[in-house]
Amino acid sequence: MTTPTRSATSSTRPTPPSKWPHTIGLLVSLAVVILAVWLVDANWIRLADLPASIGNYIVLMGQGLTHNPLEVPWSEYWVLATQRMLESIQMAWIGTLIGAVLSLPLGFLAARTVSPAGVVFVTRQFLNAVRALPEIILAIVLIMPIFGLGPLTGALALGIGSIGTLGKLTAEAIESIDPGPVEAALAAGARPVQRMRWAILPQALPEIVAFWLYRFEINIRASAVLGVIGAGGIGSLLSQLFNRREWEQIGITLVVIIAVTILVDSISGAVRARIISGGGRKLAARERHDEASAIV
Protein backbone atom coordinates (compact mmCIF):
# COMPACT_ATOMS: atom_id res chain seq x y z
CA MET A 1 0.00 0.00 0.00
CA THR A 2 2.80 2.39 0.82
CA THR A 3 4.60 2.21 -2.52
CA PRO A 4 2.63 4.28 -5.02
CA THR A 5 2.48 2.48 -8.35
CA ARG A 6 2.04 4.92 -11.18
CA SER A 7 -0.67 3.92 -13.59
CA ALA A 8 0.06 3.91 -17.31
CA THR A 9 -2.20 6.86 -18.13
CA SER A 10 -0.47 9.32 -15.82
CA SER A 11 2.79 9.13 -17.74
CA THR A 12 1.32 10.46 -21.00
CA ARG A 13 1.51 14.22 -21.26
CA PRO A 14 -1.88 15.90 -21.12
CA THR A 15 -3.00 18.23 -23.86
CA PRO A 16 -3.33 21.78 -22.59
CA PRO A 17 -6.92 22.64 -21.61
CA SER A 18 -8.96 24.45 -24.24
CA LYS A 19 -8.55 28.21 -24.20
CA TRP A 20 -11.78 28.84 -26.08
CA PRO A 21 -13.99 29.86 -23.15
CA HIS A 22 -11.33 32.33 -22.08
CA THR A 23 -10.93 33.74 -25.58
CA ILE A 24 -14.66 34.08 -26.11
CA GLY A 25 -15.03 35.84 -22.78
CA LEU A 26 -12.28 38.26 -23.73
CA LEU A 27 -13.81 38.94 -27.17
CA VAL A 28 -17.27 39.59 -25.69
CA SER A 29 -15.79 41.99 -23.13
CA LEU A 30 -13.87 43.77 -25.86
CA ALA A 31 -17.01 44.08 -27.97
CA VAL A 32 -18.90 45.57 -25.01
CA VAL A 33 -16.15 48.10 -24.41
CA ILE A 34 -15.99 49.11 -28.09
CA LEU A 35 -19.77 49.43 -28.17
CA ALA A 36 -19.64 51.57 -25.04
CA VAL A 37 -16.96 53.84 -26.47
CA TRP A 38 -19.02 54.23 -29.65
CA LEU A 39 -22.29 54.89 -27.78
CA VAL A 40 -21.01 57.23 -25.15
CA ASP A 41 -20.39 60.14 -27.48
CA ALA A 42 -17.79 61.63 -25.18
CA ASN A 43 -15.68 64.52 -26.28
CA TRP A 44 -12.41 62.57 -26.06
CA ILE A 45 -10.34 65.42 -27.44
CA ARG A 46 -10.88 67.26 -24.16
CA LEU A 47 -8.75 64.58 -22.47
CA ALA A 48 -5.70 66.24 -23.99
CA ASP A 49 -6.48 69.49 -22.14
CA LEU A 50 -7.06 67.66 -18.87
CA PRO A 51 -3.55 67.98 -17.35
CA ALA A 52 -3.36 71.68 -18.15
CA SER A 53 -6.85 72.40 -16.88
CA ILE A 54 -6.29 70.40 -13.67
CA GLY A 55 -3.17 72.49 -13.12
CA ASN A 56 -5.05 75.75 -13.69
CA TYR A 57 -7.91 74.94 -11.39
CA ILE A 58 -5.68 73.56 -8.66
CA VAL A 59 -3.79 76.86 -8.69
CA LEU A 60 -7.13 78.73 -8.53
CA MET A 61 -8.41 76.61 -5.67
CA GLY A 62 -5.07 76.70 -3.92
CA GLN A 63 -5.21 80.49 -3.81
CA GLY A 64 -8.15 80.20 -1.43
CA LEU A 65 -5.86 78.45 1.02
CA THR A 66 -3.12 81.05 0.85
CA HIS A 67 -5.25 83.77 2.43
CA ASN A 68 -5.19 84.29 6.17
CA PRO A 69 -8.05 82.06 7.41
CA LEU A 70 -8.73 84.45 10.32
CA GLU A 71 -9.53 87.40 8.06
CA VAL A 72 -12.93 88.33 6.66
CA PRO A 73 -14.22 87.05 4.23
CA TRP A 74 -11.94 83.98 4.30
CA SER A 75 -12.78 83.12 7.90
CA GLU A 76 -16.45 83.11 6.93
CA TYR A 77 -15.76 80.63 4.13
CA TRP A 78 -13.99 78.25 6.49
CA VAL A 79 -16.78 78.52 9.06
CA LEU A 80 -19.52 78.11 6.47
CA ALA A 81 -17.88 74.99 4.96
CA THR A 82 -17.42 73.48 8.43
CA GLN A 83 -21.01 74.24 9.44
CA ARG A 84 -22.38 72.66 6.27
CA MET A 85 -20.12 69.62 6.67
CA LEU A 86 -21.37 69.17 10.23
CA GLU A 87 -24.91 69.42 8.92
CA SER A 88 -24.10 66.62 6.47
CA ILE A 89 -22.79 64.53 9.36
CA GLN A 90 -25.99 65.18 11.32
CA MET A 91 -28.08 64.08 8.34
CA ALA A 92 -25.95 60.98 7.88
CA TRP A 93 -26.12 60.07 11.59
CA ILE A 94 -29.89 60.39 11.90
CA GLY A 95 -30.32 58.62 8.57
CA THR A 96 -28.13 55.74 9.69
CA LEU A 97 -30.01 55.53 12.99
CA ILE A 98 -33.35 55.31 11.19
CA GLY A 99 -31.91 52.68 8.85
CA ALA A 100 -30.50 50.69 11.78
CA VAL A 101 -33.74 50.69 13.77
CA LEU A 102 -35.83 49.64 10.76
CA SER A 103 -33.36 47.12 9.36
CA LEU A 104 -32.77 45.07 12.53
CA PRO A 105 -36.20 43.37 12.57
CA LEU A 106 -36.08 43.07 8.77
CA GLY A 107 -32.71 41.35 9.08
CA PHE A 108 -34.21 38.69 11.35
CA LEU A 109 -37.14 38.27 8.94
CA ALA A 110 -34.72 37.86 6.01
CA ALA A 111 -32.45 35.31 7.72
CA ARG A 112 -33.01 31.78 6.42
CA THR A 113 -31.94 30.26 9.73
CA VAL A 114 -34.60 32.16 11.68
CA SER A 115 -37.66 32.80 9.53
CA PRO A 116 -39.83 30.54 7.37
CA ALA A 117 -38.99 30.42 3.65
CA GLY A 118 -42.00 32.48 2.52
CA VAL A 119 -41.26 35.36 4.89
CA VAL A 120 -37.58 35.27 3.90
CA PHE A 121 -38.45 35.50 0.22
CA VAL A 122 -40.85 38.43 0.58
CA THR A 123 -38.49 40.35 2.91
CA ARG A 124 -35.49 39.80 0.65
CA GLN A 125 -37.38 41.06 -2.40
CA PHE A 126 -38.38 44.15 -0.47
CA LEU A 127 -34.77 44.76 0.61
CA ASN A 128 -33.55 44.27 -2.97
CA ALA A 129 -36.11 46.77 -4.21
CA VAL A 130 -34.93 49.39 -1.70
CA ARG A 131 -31.31 48.64 -2.56
CA ALA A 132 -31.96 49.15 -6.26
CA LEU A 133 -33.05 52.76 -5.86
CA PRO A 134 -30.62 55.62 -5.44
CA GLU A 135 -31.38 57.67 -2.32
CA ILE A 136 -31.99 60.67 -4.48
CA ILE A 137 -34.99 59.08 -6.15
CA LEU A 138 -36.37 58.06 -2.77
CA ALA A 139 -35.95 61.62 -1.60
CA ILE A 140 -37.68 63.11 -4.61
CA VAL A 141 -40.55 60.68 -4.74
CA LEU A 142 -41.42 59.70 -1.21
CA ILE A 143 -40.12 62.33 1.11
CA MET A 144 -39.82 65.73 -0.56
CA PRO A 145 -43.55 66.06 -1.27
CA ILE A 146 -44.36 65.58 2.43
CA PHE A 147 -41.37 67.02 4.26
CA GLY A 148 -40.34 69.70 1.79
CA LEU A 149 -36.72 70.63 1.26
CA GLY A 150 -34.12 70.52 4.00
CA PRO A 151 -31.79 68.32 5.99
CA LEU A 152 -34.67 66.39 7.55
CA THR A 153 -35.69 65.18 4.09
CA GLY A 154 -32.09 64.20 3.45
CA ALA A 155 -31.87 62.25 6.69
CA LEU A 156 -35.10 60.38 5.99
CA ALA A 157 -33.97 59.52 2.46
CA LEU A 158 -30.63 58.23 3.72
CA GLY A 159 -32.46 56.25 6.40
CA ILE A 160 -34.83 54.51 4.02
CA GLY A 161 -32.02 54.03 1.50
CA SER A 162 -29.91 52.32 4.17
CA ILE A 163 -32.56 49.72 4.98
CA GLY A 164 -31.79 47.66 1.90
CA THR A 165 -28.10 47.02 2.48
CA LEU A 166 -28.28 47.01 6.28
CA GLY A 167 -31.16 44.53 6.25
CA LYS A 168 -29.31 42.25 3.85
CA LEU A 169 -26.05 42.41 5.82
CA THR A 170 -27.86 41.86 9.12
CA ALA A 171 -29.51 38.77 7.68
CA GLU A 172 -26.14 37.50 6.47
CA ALA A 173 -24.53 38.13 9.85
CA ILE A 174 -27.35 36.21 11.53
CA GLU A 175 -27.05 33.33 9.07
CA SER A 176 -23.31 33.03 9.56
CA ILE A 177 -23.32 32.70 13.35
CA ASP A 178 -22.29 29.46 15.04
CA PRO A 179 -25.50 27.39 15.22
CA GLY A 180 -24.22 25.49 18.28
CA PRO A 181 -25.43 27.93 20.97
CA VAL A 182 -28.83 28.13 19.25
CA GLU A 183 -29.08 24.35 19.46
CA ALA A 184 -27.98 24.49 23.10
CA ALA A 185 -30.68 27.06 23.88
CA LEU A 186 -33.21 24.90 22.05
CA ALA A 187 -32.11 21.86 24.05
CA ALA A 188 -32.53 23.89 27.25
CA GLY A 189 -36.15 24.62 26.36
CA ALA A 190 -35.80 28.27 25.29
CA ARG A 191 -38.62 29.91 23.32
CA PRO A 192 -37.91 31.36 19.83
CA VAL A 193 -37.65 34.98 21.02
CA GLN A 194 -35.33 33.88 23.84
CA ARG A 195 -33.12 32.06 21.36
CA MET A 196 -32.87 35.22 19.25
CA ARG A 197 -32.06 37.36 22.27
CA TRP A 198 -29.53 35.12 24.02
CA ALA A 199 -28.07 32.80 21.39
CA ILE A 200 -28.25 34.76 18.11
CA LEU A 201 -28.03 38.46 18.99
CA PRO A 202 -24.91 38.28 21.22
CA GLN A 203 -23.07 36.57 18.38
CA ALA A 204 -24.24 38.81 15.55
CA LEU A 205 -24.57 42.22 17.23
CA PRO A 206 -20.93 43.33 17.05
CA GLU A 207 -20.89 42.80 13.30
CA ILE A 208 -24.27 44.44 12.88
CA VAL A 209 -23.15 47.54 14.81
CA ALA A 210 -19.98 47.64 12.71
CA PHE A 211 -22.16 47.67 9.57
CA TRP A 212 -24.13 50.58 11.03
CA LEU A 213 -20.95 52.57 11.50
CA TYR A 214 -19.71 51.69 8.05
CA ARG A 215 -23.01 52.76 6.57
CA PHE A 216 -22.67 56.04 8.49
CA GLU A 217 -19.38 56.69 6.68
CA ILE A 218 -21.07 55.98 3.34
CA ASN A 219 -24.07 58.12 4.22
CA ILE A 220 -21.87 61.17 4.83
CA ARG A 221 -20.78 60.94 1.20
CA ALA A 222 -24.29 60.17 -0.01
CA SER A 223 -25.65 63.21 1.80
CA ALA A 224 -23.61 65.38 -0.55
CA VAL A 225 -25.70 64.16 -3.46
CA LEU A 226 -28.95 64.95 -1.69
CA GLY A 227 -27.65 68.45 -1.04
CA VAL A 228 -27.67 69.11 -4.77
CA ILE A 229 -31.47 68.88 -4.91
CA GLY A 230 -31.68 71.19 -1.92
CA ALA A 231 -31.50 68.93 1.14
CA GLY A 232 -28.87 71.13 2.75
CA GLY A 233 -25.48 70.12 4.01
CA ILE A 234 -22.23 70.20 2.13
CA GLY A 235 -23.87 69.19 -1.17
CA SER A 236 -25.99 72.34 -1.33
CA LEU A 237 -22.95 74.49 -0.68
CA LEU A 238 -20.84 72.70 -3.31
CA SER A 239 -23.62 73.00 -5.85
CA GLN A 240 -23.95 76.79 -5.26
CA LEU A 241 -20.21 77.36 -5.34
CA PHE A 242 -19.66 75.44 -8.57
CA ASN A 243 -22.56 77.29 -10.20
CA ARG A 244 -20.97 80.61 -9.24
CA ARG A 245 -17.47 79.28 -10.04
CA GLU A 246 -16.07 80.61 -6.74
CA TRP A 247 -12.81 78.70 -7.07
CA GLU A 248 -11.07 80.03 -4.00
CA GLN A 249 -14.04 79.17 -1.81
CA ILE A 250 -14.34 75.76 -3.52
CA GLY A 251 -10.73 75.07 -2.58
CA ILE A 252 -11.44 75.89 1.07
CA THR A 253 -14.60 73.78 1.06
CA LEU A 254 -12.86 70.76 -0.47
CA VAL A 255 -10.13 70.91 2.16
CA VAL A 256 -12.77 70.95 4.88
CA ILE A 257 -14.58 68.00 3.28
CA ILE A 258 -11.37 65.98 3.00
CA ALA A 259 -10.21 66.75 6.54
CA VAL A 260 -13.55 66.09 8.24
CA THR A 261 -14.25 62.94 6.20
CA ILE A 262 -10.84 61.44 6.93
CA LEU A 263 -11.22 62.31 10.62
CA VAL A 264 -14.69 60.75 10.90
CA ASP A 265 -13.62 57.70 8.86
CA SER A 266 -10.65 57.02 11.08
CA ILE A 267 -12.64 57.42 14.31
CA SER A 268 -15.41 55.21 12.99
CA GLY A 269 -12.89 52.70 11.62
CA ALA A 270 -11.14 52.47 14.99
CA VAL A 271 -14.46 51.94 16.79
CA ARG A 272 -15.45 49.26 14.28
CA ALA A 273 -12.14 47.45 14.71
CA ARG A 274 -12.58 47.59 18.48
CA ILE A 275 -16.15 46.25 18.31
CA ILE A 276 -15.27 43.41 15.96
CA SER A 277 -12.12 42.34 17.78
CA GLY A 278 -14.03 42.29 21.07
CA GLY A 279 -15.06 38.72 20.36
CA GLY A 280 -11.50 37.70 19.65
CA ARG A 281 -12.55 36.22 16.32
CA LYS A 282 -10.55 36.61 13.16
CA LEU A 283 -12.88 38.49 10.92
CA ALA A 284 -10.57 40.45 8.68
CA ALA A 285 -11.55 38.61 5.52
CA ARG A 286 -15.25 38.64 6.32
CA GLU A 287 -15.20 42.28 7.23
CA ARG A 288 -13.60 43.19 3.93
CA HIS A 289 -16.25 41.29 2.07
CA ASP A 290 -18.91 43.05 4.09
CA GLU A 291 -17.42 46.44 3.39
CA ALA A 292 -17.62 45.68 -0.28
CA SER A 293 -21.27 44.75 -0.05
CA ALA A 294 -22.04 47.64 2.29
CA ILE A 295 -21.06 50.12 -0.37
CA VAL A 296 -23.60 48.85 -2.84
Binding site: V228, G235, F242, I257, D265
Partner: peptide, 15 residues
Protein backbone atom coordinates in the same frame (compact mmCIF):
# COMPACT_ATOMS: atom_id res chain seq x y z
CA UNK B 1 -13.09 61.41 0.92
CA UNK B 2 -14.45 63.52 -1.96
CA UNK B 3 -18.01 62.34 -2.69
CA UNK B 4 -18.98 61.19 -6.18
CA UNK B 5 -21.00 64.33 -6.80
CA UNK B 6 -17.96 66.41 -5.83
CA UNK B 7 -15.87 64.62 -8.47
CA UNK B 8 -18.63 65.22 -10.98
CA UNK B 9 -18.60 68.99 -10.32
CA UNK B 10 -14.81 69.07 -10.59
CA UNK B 11 -14.66 67.06 -13.81
CA UNK B 12 -17.40 69.14 -15.43
CA UNK B 13 -15.25 72.16 -14.64
CA UNK B 14 -12.10 70.48 -16.00
CA UNK B 15 -13.40 69.05 -19.30
Amino acid sequence: SIPDIGWAFLMVAFV
